[in-house]
Simulated assay, not measured.
Amino acid sequence: MTALRMRAREFLSEDELVTVRERKTWKGVALIAHAWALIIGSIALVAWWPNPVTYLLAVGIIGSRQLGLAILMHDGAHGCLSPDEKTNFFLSQWFCAYPVFAETRAYRRYHLQHHARTQQEDDPDLVLSAPFPITKLSYRRKFWRDISGQTGYQQRKAQLLNALGPPDWPLSQRAAHFWAKLGPQCLVNAVMFAALAAAGVWWAYPLLWLVPLLTWMMVITRIRNIAEHAVVPDSKDPLRNTRTTHANFLERLFIAPYYVNYHLEHHLLFYVPCYNLPRVHRILARSHLAGRMETQPNYPAVLRLATAKPDREDRPGQLVNSLRRARAGDAVGGDQKAGGF
C-alpha cells in the first residue's frame, strides 16, 4: 500500500525547483564541520572548566550534535551532501555515520521504503509512530529509560550481538561478519579515543562521547520520531501524514539540529538538501496548500498531542507488546532504526 503523492510542480515553479535542488559540497562540509566544532568545543569547555554545569551542558550539546551527524548521514543517504557521488558517500560514512556506529548503505536500503510507504501498513518505520497517543505516565517511563541509558544500552547490545553472528560460526567467519557490520565504526571510534588520549583528555571519550550517545541522543531521537509522524491527522495525505515543527534557537541547539524539524518538506522533496528545506517551507506557506500542512508551533506542543491519552488508561507495555505481536520480528529492528528520518 502506498500513500498519495504530490508532484513538485504542484507547488514549485521550475526556477524554484532548480534552486532548492542545488547541492553544494562546501555547504555539506560546512555543516559537518559545524557539528564537530561544537563537539570539540564542548569537550574543551569541560576540560578547561570542569564542573557539573559545564558537564551537563556539554552532554546536551554533544548529544544533539551526535543526532546532527545522524541527520547529515541521512542527507548523505539521499545524495545531498555533495553532487559528486563518491564525495557524498565518503563524507556520509566517515564523518557522520561511523562515529555514531551507523552505516549509510544499510540505512538507505530501508529508509527509501519509508519514503515510498509513509504511514501505511507496510511502512518499516510505522512501529515508531503507531503506539501514539500514549499517557503522560507512559512517556515518563520512556524518558527515564532513554535518559538513564537503558534504551541506548539495549540498542548497542543488540547491534553488537548481531555483528558477532551466531556462536556456532567459525571464528574467522564471525570476525569477517563483525568487520562488515561494525569494523569501520570501531576503527573510527578507536581513532577518536587515541586523539583524545594524545590531547591528555582520554576520559572525554567515555564521559563526553559515549554518555551523550547512550542518553541525551536517545531522548531527542525519540522526541524527533514522535514529532515527525506520531498523531498525524491523515495517513493518506502527504501534507498531513508528516509534520513540520517550528523550532526556536534552544530547540535547534539541543533537540532539532540541521533543519530536521522541516520533515514535511523533506518528504515532499526528499532529494533537496537539508539547508534548502526552510526555503521550501516558505514557498509552501505562501501557496494555496498552506492550510492543509500539518505543522506545530514547537516541540512541547507535539509532546502534548502525543501524550493526550488519559493517565487512567495507562497500561504499561500493553501497546508495545500488542504491536510486537502484530508485527513479529520488527520490534528490535524498529529500535535500531530509531535513528532514521
Rank of each mutant, 00 (worst) to 15 (best):
V59P: 02
E265A: 14
I61D: 02
G68I: 07
E251V: 02
Y258A: 04
Y110C: 00
S322W: 04
L69C: 09
M73V: 01
S13N: 05
G317E: 06
A199L: 15
A116S: 14
G200S: 09
V332E: 13
G334H: 01
R174A: 09
T25M: 05
L210R: 04
F249K: 11
M293P: 01
Q159G: 07
Q296M: 14
L213R: 08
W179R: 04
R315Q: 13
M217N: 13
G329K: 07
L31F: 14
K27W: 08
F341P: 15
Y275W: 15
Q159W: 00
A180N: 08
I134D: 00
A285N: 10
F178V: 09
R286M: 09
V302E: 09
T242F: 04
T151H: 07
L67W: 10
K142R: 15
W179F: 15
F11D: 05
T307I: 03
E10I: 09
L239R: 06
V211N: 01
N241V: 13
L72Y: 08
P212V: 10
K236R: 14
I147D: 11
P310D: 09
I43H: 04
F95W: 14
D330V: 08
E16Y: 08
Q120C: 12
Y107W: 12
S172P: 03
L38A: 10
